[in-house]
Design a protein around this nucleic acid. Structure first.
Lengths: 235, 235
DNA sequence: TAGTGGTCTAGACCACGGT
DNA sequence: CCGTGGTCTAGACCACTAG
């Protein structure tokens, strides 16, 4: 059972995009060029391009070659409203810890698999500020299996997901989230700089990835008073 | 500029599924039968089926005809954890009001368009209970334009979205949500049967639909103490 | 074994973009 | 105008399902 030809072409083009060999704005080879280069017919070439299009890597226009675009992240994720959109607001990320090796926390909402727990976790936490106000505290864990040189690294453009994609060719394939409205106590109140008993939103997320056995576990505390949490989904 | 043949076939098959002419479990005509019936080639028939597959209307298996399946609604929506999944828990929906004509509320998070506001809203509200406990209060508004006989109707299987789809062939095409953690006050506390000052999750949603100019506006208050809000997204 | 869906070839015509 | 992507035809071979 060998992999379909159009899937191979798709994988090849995708990895080139991920590795920035085709950077945003680049025009891909035309369908006819792909046919010649890989000895395939247009049907096969188009199937590969169709997948890249559907997954948001390229934009296709009649009469024009396919163009690499900024990948949309409508992964059902929630994000602080105004984080990457609002021009004019001042965004700041403060790395509190890591990425570093750490023991797994106990009592996680989504319990990791045995294999994940067999090695220490890679952990990092950060604060997110908008216009000087702390709006979110974020903690992240994932198994160190297969990540020998991850700790201490700087993220590409400050983005963890971009780093995963470009340096390790790992994509987020899905997510499960759980939301609780709770009252801020102790450390949470202190980190978010709000009073004890203020309402905050706790979000626990399990991201699944394209690497089998690898999941990312996140726990967020959000002050939604000024900046609500939002997301948009486009079919 | 006429519509592509494969799109016509796709629309036809989809409407048959929506209208329950092909109900869940039904095997669709085979690709070769579609070719004969509509005088097309397999490439064209397959493109229509591919779309139905991607949008979650059918499941395709090699050696077997395509089968109509229960449509997955991973629309980035949030839902009370355990609402449709948890076997054993007792789910109850209490209609509090409507569907009935009402004036539009003021101060909505997502302001409706002028055309929507030019006619009164259709409004309905309900309480959701799990195991006898009230976990959510839900209010919904949408413009009465084009809905002359909607008020007073019973929903199909108690589902508003199913009713929209089957009776009016309207699908949800996207959603934008905004979340706030707030403290329950007055009516909200009373409806959810919790004490004043308890933390609750407020969710405001704007659903866009396949009918131009029609949006559904919802406001939810959730008691997340026992049952968190969750969602899963699969790429 | 017959029928089915998954893949692929080798053409064709059209609408649209940029030159 | 040429090259591009969008659509479609008419075949072919294979792997799988089900009787």
């Amino acid at each position: 059972m060998k992999e379909a030809r159009y899937r191979q072409i798709y994988q090849l083009l995708k990895s080139r995009i991920q590795k920035d060999q085709y950077s945003v704005g680049t025009l891909l080879p035309s369908e006819n060029e792909l046919c010649r280069d890989f000895s395939i017919t247009r049907t096969t070439a188009r199937k590969a391009l169709d997948m890249l299009d559907r997954e948001g890597y390229i934009k296709r226009t009649r009469g024009r070659r396919s163009q690499v675009i900024e990948r949309r992240h409508s992964l059902g994720l929630l994000s602080v409203k105004g984080f990457s959109e609002a021009a004019g607001t001042h965004v700041e990320t403060i790395m509190l810890a890591g990425p570093e090796l750490a023991s797994w926390p106990t009592g996680m909402v989504f319990p990791p698999e045995e294999t994940e727990l067999s090695r220490p976790a890679i952990f990092f936490s950060r604060l997110r500020k908008l216009d000087g106000q702390v709006v979110m505290h974020e903690s992240n864990w994932f198994s160190s299996i297969g990540f020998e040189h991850f700790t201490g690294q700087q993220f590409i453009d400050g983005s963890f997901f971009k780093t995963l994609s470009q340096r390790h060719l790992i994509e987020i394939t899905g997510s499960t989230q759980e939301l609780h409205a709770i009252l801020a106590r102790g450390e949470v109140a202190r980190l978010l700089r709000i009073s004890e008993g203020a309402p905050v939103l706790q979000i626990c997320i399990k991201f699944s990835t394209s690497r089998p056995g690898l999941n990312i576990y996140s726990r967020l505390y959000c002050n939604t008073e000024t900046y609500p949490i939002g997301n948009t989904y486009v079919h």
